[in-house]
Amino acid sequence: MSINKVVASADEAIKDIPDGATIMFGGFGLCGLPENCIAALVKKGTTNLTCISNNAGVDDFGIGLMLHKKQVKKMIASYVGENAEFERQLLSGELEVELIPQGTLATRCLIAGYGIPFVPVLAGVGTEVAIGKETLSRNGKEYLIEEAFDASFAIVKAWKGDTMGNLIFKDTARNFNPLMAMAGKITIAEVEELVQPGELDPNMIHTPGIYVHRIFQGSHYEKRIEQRTVRKAN
């Protein structure tokens, strides 16, 4: 017997996420997004959310779907362009936004998963990102103190996973997913292919199942492409 973390569906996986929760979402642009859980959150109408994600989706895809339903109170991200509804809500004051340098965003997830409470970073020193932040000097250099994220939930998307929660990501759909998987108090993973323990090579696991609390096989992935760039066939 092995620990079984499988839940029946996206609805089941997100059903106890309360209004006002802080949720991390894996993905970069539209790549590697937990599409099924986002759809379930939109359907359930969970509201007043603080979302931590590198981007905020586009108008009709990704976190943009939740913005459209006014479910998001605050967005914590590094880049939020390409989204007209986001811009409207931001300018009208309906939406709060905190912008964080991308490497700092990734590192604050990483240290949460590594049990390190804070870390000194150079990014943002001397800029408005540094305003109100504690600093530290070492060997003539000044660093900003950046804290580990503290999020109740993390929702990630993997390529393959097993029932014990071990995950493997594909190509650049990896991005923030393994980092956010480590950082959530409760981590939900949706995977394209769910397999039995033993079917994944232990040497190839990107996220060990200890970091994952719920897992299910998603369906109907649209995997939208934001910038389709091609060359002529040779």
Binding site: F28, G29, R224, I225, Q227, T229, V230, K232, A233
Partner: peptide
């Protein structure tokens, strides 16, 4: 480089969100 037409993969993009290849 960019993929040949028809070989774009949504899971493989660059930081500008463009489809690319390895």
């Amino acid at each position: 480089p960019f993929p040949e037409e028809g070989k774009e993969d949504a899971d493989l993009i660059n930081a500008g969100k463009q489809t690319i290849t390895t």
